[in-house]
Every structure is written in C-alpha cells, then in structure tokens.
Design a protein around this nucleic acid. Structure first.
Length: 992
RNA sequence: GUGGGGGUGGCAGAGCUAGGUCAAAUGCGCUAGCUUGAGGGGCUAGUGCCUUAGGGCUUCGAGGGUUCAAAUCCCUUCCCCCACACCA
C-alpha cells in the first residue's frame, strides 16, 4: 500500500503533472512532461489555495482535512479539463516560533517533552533547534514531506516563506497600497501585558496557554479632597443610585498623581502596578482606609455628598479597591449596609424599574433568598441574577437616559462620563489571574502609537459586502457569519513590537503581525517562482503596480516584469479559498477586505470554502490528551488514500468529523476488494452491446422468460406462471431458460445503471463539497451494489463499470485510482489518458440508467426480505415450497382511483361505480384503507406484467437461497386464499 | 451578553431548504450462524418494543400547534458548541 503511494507520487513528480503553465502559450515541442502540460494549459484556468501552515509543529490528521478537501477539489477541476494551480508556502510570521525557540534554548522541560512524546522528535534533535530559522526549516520540511505523502497535487515550485526578503517587499507594497487608500491609522490600544517580561502577552506566552480576555470597565471619578476616588464598575448607569463609597478597612490606599494631567487620585496599594500600565501614575503617599473615611466624596453627576464606609467584601486587589455603593440594585452593597447597621439611616435610591420587583430589587432578592451577610456565598448568585435582569429588562428611571433599557443606558452613560471627564476608560483581564511565562501577573497596558488597519471604514465595508455578495460561500450557512463580522469589524492592530515577518514600512521598529500579512499572499504565489529568483531590491512598488494592477508599462522594469504580469493575469482572480472554519472570523474576512482595497473588481476572490475539524475517537485532539496523530505517522500506517477518504467522508463539510481506526480499516478493505474485483471481472472483453432496442425489446431482454410480445398480458402471465418456465425446483431450467443465460447480463446492466446514475450526480456533489455523500456513494454504496451484483451473477462483465468507477473516485483516492487505471490498460468505454489524474471525469449516460430494471431489482429484494421475515416469524428454516401471488387487476385499478381521488369516501364511491371492481366489494374497503395510509406517496402503480417479470428474473436466486421451488402466480389464477393479500407492488406469499 | 451553529437509534452521522415511499441511509459497535486448528480476518443474517404469516405499537431534546399526514412547517421552552480580535 505504501509502495503504491511512493510509486505514483514519484511518477507525478517526474512527469510534473501538477506544474501548470500560465496561459495557452507553450508552443515549443518538448518532453512528455511538456506534452502533458500542454494538454491542460489550453484549457480554462482554475486557481485555488488553502491557508498556508505555520511551521511550529508537525501537522496532524486534523490539518489533513482542509488540505485533502482542497486537493480533492483541485483534482476534480483538473479532471474537468481545467488548468489547475494549487500552490503552497509557509507562514512564519509572528511570535510563537520565537517564543518556542527561546524555550528550547532554555531547556524548558514542558516543550522538550512535547517534542519528544507528541511530535516524536528525539531530544538530541530538538536540542539543536534553538534558532527560530532552524525550527522553521525543520517543521516546514516535515510538513512538506507530509503533504507530498498525502498525494496533494501541489505545485511546489512556488513555495516561499513569509519572512523571505522577496515576500517582505510584496507586503511592503501591500501596506503602501493600504496607506495610499487611507486605511492605515494610528492610535492607542489596550493589550494584555506582562510587567515582568515587559511585553504583550498572547495565549502561547501564558502559563497553561490561557487566552487573556480584555474587558472594558468604567472608572468613575468621585471628587474627594484635593483629587478624586476612582471606582471601577461594570454598571456606570447606576451612578444615580450611589449612596456612599466602600473601602476595605484593612487595606492600604495610595494617593497617586496622574503625570498626564497632574491630578490626584486615590486607589488601593495592591492595584497600583496594574493601573500604572494604563495610566501614568506616580505615588504621592500612603493613606490608611481609616483616615480616608473621615472625609466625604461627591457624586460627579448629582453633586451629592457621599460618606465612605468600611466593607469587607471590597477586594483591595481587584479593580481600584474602591467601590461605589448602590444598595437599591447591588445585593452586596445592600448587605454591607445592613451589616454595618446603616440600613435605615441611609436612604436607598432607585435607578431602574424592574418588573417583578419593587423599588429596591437588591434588598428584595436578599430578603427572598434569606442571605445573611456580605460574606454569604450566595450573595454572588443574587448579584448575577439582578445584574442580568436589570441589564435586559430593567428600564432607567433616573437621569437623562430615563426610559432606556439598562444595557443601552450603560453604554451611553459610559461614553458621556468619559467624554466630560467624570470617568476614565479602564480595562481588566476578565479571566484574571493569568500569569505569563515570565512570571508576572498579566494586566492590561495601553499601547500608544499603535498602528491599525481601519476595517471600520464604512465605504470599505460596503465594498467588502459587495464582494461577499458576489462570492460563493460554502457551507452556505456560513454567509451570515461573514456578514456579521463585516459589520462588526473595527480597527485592527496590525503591528507588534517583535516577531518574524515583515517590518512595518511606516515604523521599521515594528513588525507586521500575522493576520495582516496573510490576506493577499495568494497573489504572490502567481509570481513567486519568478520573484524568488530575483534580487529583493528589484521588487519595487512600481514593478508590483505593473504586475498586479496593470499600471504603467514594463519599460524600465526588470525583464521578468511581463512574464510576471502574464502569470498574475492568467491565474487571478482566486477561484477558491480553503481553510478550517476558525478563520472565518479573522483571516477570511480580512482576505475579502484587502482584496477589495487593492485589486480591481475582476480580481476579487470568487469562492471561500471552510470545513470543520477532526476529532480523534470522538474527542478533541490536544497536546494534553496526547491523542494527536501526526499525519506522516498515519500515512505510514494506513496509506494516503485511506486517510484522505476518512477525513472527508466522516461528516458534512461544516461539522466536525471523527477519525478512528475501524473507519480507516473499513476503507482499506473496501479499496482492496474493489481492486481485486477489477482484476477478476474487468479484464474480460465485454460482449458487444445490442443496439437499437425499443423499450419493449429491452424489457424482453431484461425478463427473457416473458417470451411472446404478441400475446395479451394475461396469456403472457399464464404462460410464464403455469410452471413451465418456473417452478421446476432447484435444478429448474438448466439450459432451458433464457433467464439463466442472461442472469449475468441483467446483473451487470443493473450495476451499470447504478454506476451511470452516480456518474451523473457526481459533478454537482464535487462542486458543492458534498464529500460525505459522494464518498459514501462511490465507495460504500457502490461496494454494496457490486456485492449484490456478484451474488446475482456468476460471471458478470464489469469492465465498463470499472472504467467509470476508477476516474470517478480518483480525486478522493488518487493512488489506488492510478494503479487501477494503469491495470485497466487501454480504455474502451472512457477516454484514455496517461494518468487518471489527467483523465476526463466520466459523464454518466442517461440512456444506461434503467429505472425499470432497478425497480424490478428492488421488487425482488423486497420480496426476498418479506419471505425471510415470514420464515423467521413462523420459525421455519426449510420451506418445501414458496408461492408468490401477484395482485389482481382490479386492485391496480382501485389504486389508481385512490391516487386520483385522495379522499376515502370519494374513492370508494368511484370504485363502486366501476364494473370491474364492484364484484370485489367485500374486499374493496380494506384494500382502499391500506392505500389511504400513504395517499400522498402512492406514485405509479406497477403492472402485473412488471411484477411477474421481476419475480421470474429473481426466481433462480430465491430458489438457490431458499433451497426450494419458488413459483409466481397471478392472484386471478389462484384458488389459494392467501393470494387475496396481494397488493400492487407487494406480492402475497405462501410458504409451505 | 451579542452573533452564528446544533440537539436524531449503543456510538458516529444522514435526513430535515421542496411534509407522505422514515423505525429512519451509511458506517462502527453488538448478537447469532458459517468459514478458520484457535485468534484475527472474511461472509450471511439480526440489532426500539410486541407478534408462530409479511402486522401492530411507541420513537427523532421537552411541550403545544398546523395538516388526512411532521424528524421535517409554526410557537414556547431547556440544553450543547463556536466566535467576540490584535492570537497563529
């Protein structure tokens, strides 16, 4: 199996099967390879890409899903006769690889053990990977090898790394265009920050890989003494209900100076470090809580005087260590008030009206729940409940935003207070505490001079929407998400202080971050094989303007300019972009934005396809679970085709799929079976197909026992059913019946009918990425059909079947397909090609689809099932005789009436008026009732002739299986009472 | 919280946009029989409940509705997953 992979991957590479030329311009006579290329380059182009990998680990089978999906599509398009470009490169931009190299250098045990135990890299090797570039080289080599071993039809000539100097020039050009369009802005921005490491922190920089979540809060400023107290709150709208301030009596507070405006503020000592990351504070002096409580503060909005009281629930490490008290709406505030015996003395002030509650919801809920004090753990529960209710259903009563919902008012008030200086915009890490790998507690820092790409620009959004509207999005339901994200996107920070990649042209001390340098790189692939051979300095803005935008002329530009322009114009726009669903929210939407910002409309992307993830035995793959299977190990064990098949066939595109050993083994055994069956049944030259058949002749061929076409249907049935051609026992008809001789023919034709039907359906399934359904049809169901065919026939002619099947499955299991394609030799039913990868996808022929034959086969199957279920029911395993009765004509007529009239009583009336039916009045009601059960789905009524014919064709099979004579009789011809149970399409069965 | 996607048989997972042929594809698992020196593998059948004649009954998160007919349409409700960014 592995041999098969190696053999064909070698041949594809040798003949350069996947290295297309731009345009139909190759004219020099040349090698076979050239010849192959020419065959496809005269055709329509198809350009597709999958997200390029970040080489900080070997790839696992999860990655394989996206690339396999892409490759199947690439191979499909190639077999539709298109010139297909599927390139690949490596994205090395950003900090994780840097961090990883550093940790290896520090002999970090965690990372070394991951390398050893999960990636299978010996310590001796990993110890050498302390340079980020070595890491990149090591893993990209691994990944490329894995992709080749999976048989991906990638044009590797165009490979590049996002830190290559030539690519840097391209990104510089990209940002120059964004800047010229006015989309680059500068400002400040909150980031998770480690005060020890003095750097921004992402999930990979934290202990336990936690993603720090930044949350906005409002720091309300309450004038106090010579400055102000800062209270950080989630609910600025309750400012109208503040009755007092809380401080922790045991905490130490600081008077600090804001170096920016020179004002004095009061906060707890414990939060100084964290707050200084956001505000330029310096310590003036320490003040005790006791001392601070001697004076009063002032409500910045209402101007009321507010006393300061002690409260133990105030955490000096959280927020600012100073809390504003709204006892009417905050259970903890109310509890603290009550605990201090101030309940009656301080007057509660209502801010919001909440249905189901009176004026003071906090007080009510505390009393209802019977919460004893501020240290009662259920106080938090009460708080959460009140907050949630008030935010959604509470209506403001106080202040200028009266009448608004709590949630809306909150936003408005926050904005207003920040604007007029009565509050500060503060940020918190909502999932705090998180510690960085440097050991510091991660806080929020306001980075100044941060550069942004302004995705909030309305005109830009409008263009992005327009592009989206013109695109094909798969799965279709994902479109809503793109729409939402476009409307939601604002400024996106596009630089970081460190990382691999490209320096930011407007400030070369900064690096462009990873999601910003990967939005239009697909354009670079079209010229990368040329650009990578050029000197970086040759790749000027002017050159790229010419190549990508067609601006100016090639005069004065490097000699490669025209060729580059031609490549780009030929391959662009991008026909299909592929990735896993997680990139919809950033990368894929950015891709749309950046394309519309830079390229003319006709170069906008045409399609995006996203897929779900791969689970391992039903569980998410993760390093901690150790259930990651590296793709190379999997290929080594199972072979590429089985992995390819399993990762795309387990579930629909949008859902996650499961990878498990039994599934893989099932695929392998079926593939082997198909290969062996082909060797056995497809080498024989087929008989010449009889031509010019009228439907009637065809019918006779299918059911040869029905001999005379001149006789009336009744006579025909009689002759067929009188026992002459039928019930002769096990050895019936040896040499006598034409049915016998034609059994192979019928089974083969039936199989072909099914095959052609699938071939007709296949293209749209490939186009729509119904890969699950498609792969089930092409392997599992076709396999089952073949089994049935082989059961029905002894020596079927299956050459046409295999000549069609092999190319149809080739995109999914290319190695098996090539091997079988080669083994088939010269093709007789489909167009030949040196590789199945370059063959034409077979078109199904509707004329070979024989619904009647298939229906007859279904009929036999149903009869067979009924017989065996009766046998089981009556606990008989050796019947002496089986008789089948085919329903009488009047029943067929009645069925037609039922289907027409739909209603029981109307149909009944019509039936009784019919001379042919009336004599059977006793049975009519019962039969009619049966039809009524599924009145909408009755469909056509099979003729008795059809049923008899089908039974005759299945007779031999049934007799073989049952080991007894089987006969078919018309209900009209039989005196057996059981015959009366027959219904059209459902023969009555008598077993004796 | 906001936005999106889901809840189907022991498991995975179709079907549900066009209601009926759906006790519900396909696969895995399980059971039995055959094959085999045993095991593995392969083949055949079965796998909601009841039933000695192909039938009946109850099922598709829960509750209600529309319809001759609902896994599929409508309403209510519960639960799960993903995203919310500066991170690849």
């Amino acid at each position: 199996m592995h041999d098969l992979d190696v053999k064909w991957q070698g041949k594809w590479a040798e003949k350069r099967v996947f290295e297309p030329q731009a345009g139909a311009i190759e004219s020099s006579p040349a090698t076979t390879a050239r010849h192959l290329q020419r065959q496809v380059t005269t055709a329509q182009k198809f350009y597709l890409t999958a997200a390029f990998p970040y080489p900080n680990s070997p790839q696992h089978i999860g990655h394989g899903r996206t690339y396999t999906t892409t490759d199947i599509y690439a191979r499909y398009q190639r077999m539709r006769g298109k010139s297909v470009l599927f390139p690949m490169g490596f994205h090395v931009t950003g900090t994780p690889i840097l961090a990883m190299a550093k940790r290896i250098g520090e002999k970090d045990e965690e990372i070394l053990s991951i390398f050893e135990n999960i990636y299978g890299i010996p310590r001796a090797v990993s110890a050498t990977l302390t340079d980020p570039r070595d890491l990149v080289a090591y893993f990209s080599r691994e990944i490329e090898a894995g992709m080749r071993e999976m048989g991906y039809s990638i044009d590797w000539r165009r490979k590049f790394y996002s830190f290559d100097a030539q690519f840097n020039r391209f990104i510089e050009w990209h940002f120059a265009k964004l800047e010229q369009a006015g989309y680059i802005t500068k400002g400040e921005h909150p980031v998770p920050w480690c005060p020890v490491g003095q750097t921004a922190i992402g999930a990979h920089d934290t202990k336990g890989d936690l993603d720090p979540q930044i949350e906005e809060v409002t720091g309300v400023l309450f004038p106090y003494d010579d400055g102000a107290l800062i209270c950080s709150t989630y609910r600025p709208e309750t400012i109208y209900g503040v009755t007092n301030i809380w401080m922790n009596p045991d905490a130490v507070y600081l008077k600090v100076k804001n170096e920016k405006d020179g004002k004095a503020y009061y906060i707890s000592k414990d939060v100084f470090t964290a707050l200084s990351m956001q505000l330029p504070f310096s310590i003036v002096e320490e003040v005790s809580a006791q001392k601070m409580m001697e004076k009063k503060a002032k409500n910045p909005i209402t101007g009321e005087e507010l006393p300061i009281f002690p409260a133990t629930f105030v955490d000096p490490k959280h927020g600012t260590g100073v809390v504003m008290s709204v006892p009417a709406h905050a259970p903890l505030d109310y509890l603290a008030l009550r605990d201090a015996g101030l309940d009656g003395r301080i007057k509660l002030k209502q801010v919001l009206a909440l249905s189901g509650f009176g004026a003071f919801p906090a007080k009510e809920i505390v009393e209802r729940m019977g919460i004893k004090s501020q240290s009662d753990t259920r106080a938090e529960e009460a708080t959460a409940e009140i907050y949630k209710k008030e935010a959604h259903t509470g209506v403001m009563m106080a202040g200028e935003f009266a009448g608004m919902k709590g949630m809306e008012a909150k936003e408005k008030i926050r904005a207003k207070m920040i604007a007029d200086g009565s509050a500060l915009a503060l940020y918190e890490i909502s999932n705090s505490p998180i510690y960085s790998r440097y050991g510091g507690l991660v806080g929020v820092k306001i980075v100044r001079d941060q550069w942004f790409i302004d995705y909030g620009d309305e005109a830009w959004k409008a263009q992005a929407r327009e592009c989206l509207a013109g695109m094909s999005i798969l799965p279709q339901k994902t479109r809503h998400e793109y729409e939402y994200i476009i409307s939601w996107l604002r400024q996106k920070a596009c630089t970081r202080s460190a990382g691999l990649g490209t320096a930011f042209p407007l400030d070369r001390t900064k690096m462009i971050e990873a999601l910003s340098d990967s939005t239009i790189y697909m354009a670079f692939y079209t010229i990368s094989h040329i650009a990578m051979k050029m000197k970086p300095e040759e790749l000027s803005e002017k050159l790229f303007d010419y190549v990508f935008l067609g601006k100016g002329s090639s005069a004065g530009l490097p000699k490669e300019a025209e060729e580059m322009r031609r490549e780009f114009s030929y391959w662009y726009p991008l026909d299909s972009r592929h990735s896993a669903t997680d990139l919809v929210h950033n990368h894929l939407t950015f891709l749309i934005f950046n394309h519309v910002a830079i390229f003319p409309r006709e170069m906008w992307p045409r399609q995006i396809v996203t897929n779900g993830f791969v689970l391992m035995d039903g569980k998410k793959m993760s390093k901690s679970m150790g259930n990651i299977i590296p793709i190379r190990a999997a290929v080594k064990q199972f072979g590429a085709d089985a992995i390819r098949f399993v990762v795309v066939s387990g579930a629909d595109l949008s859902s996650d799929t499961d990878f498990n050993r039994p599934a893989v083994e099932g695929v392998i055994s079926r593939l082997k079976f198909m290969k062996e069956a082909m060797a056995k049944y497809a080498s024989i030259l087929p008989a010449v197909e009889p031509e010019g058949s009228t439907p009637m002749e065809k019918f006779a061929r299918n059911f040869p026992a029905v001999e005379s076409r001149d006789s009336t249907p009744m006579e025909k049935h009689a002759s067929a059913a009188d026992g002459k051609g039928m019930a002769q026992g096990k050895k019936a008809g040896a040499g006598k019946s034409a049915a016998m001789e034609n059994r192979d023919d019928i089974a083969g034709r039936w199989l072909l009918s099914r095959m052609h039907k699938r071939a007709i359906a296949a293209p749209s399934m490939y186009e729509n990425f119904q890969l699950r359904e498609l792969s089930l049809e092409l392997l599992y169901n076709t396999f089952n059909d073949l089994q049935w065919c082989l059961k029905r026939a002894s020596k079927p002619q299956l050459r046409e079947f295999f000549e069609m099947w092999v190319p149809l499955v080739a995109p999914i299991v290319p190695h098996y397909a090539e091997e079988m394609w080669e083994a088939l030799g010269k093709k007789q039913y489909v167009k030949d090609a040196p590789f199945v990868a370059l063959a034409e996808l077979p078109k199904g022929d509707e004329k070979k689809v024989d619904e009647r034959l298939e229906a007859a086969e279904d009929y036999i199957l149903r009869a067979r099932e009924d017989i065996s279920s009766i046998l089981k029911l009556i606990k008989k395993d050796k019947p002496a005789k089986v008789e089948l009765f085919v329903a009488a004509e009047w029943k067929r007529k009645l069925r037609a009436i039922a289907a027409r009239e739909k209603k029981f009583d109307v149909a009944m009336k019509a039936a009784m008026a019919d001379a042919e039916i009336k004599p059977h009045a006793a049975q009519v009601a019962k039969v009619l009732q049966n039809y009524m059960k599924n009145i909408g789905a009755l469909g056509e009524t099979p003729t008795a002739e059809f049923e008899m014919g089908a039974l005759l064709s299945g007779k031999k099979l049934l007799e073989d299986e049952l080991g007894c004579p089987v006969s078919a009789v018309l209900e009209e011809e039989s005196a057996v009472p059981k015959a009366a149970f027959a219904l059209p399409g459902k023969p009555s069965i008598m077993i004796s």
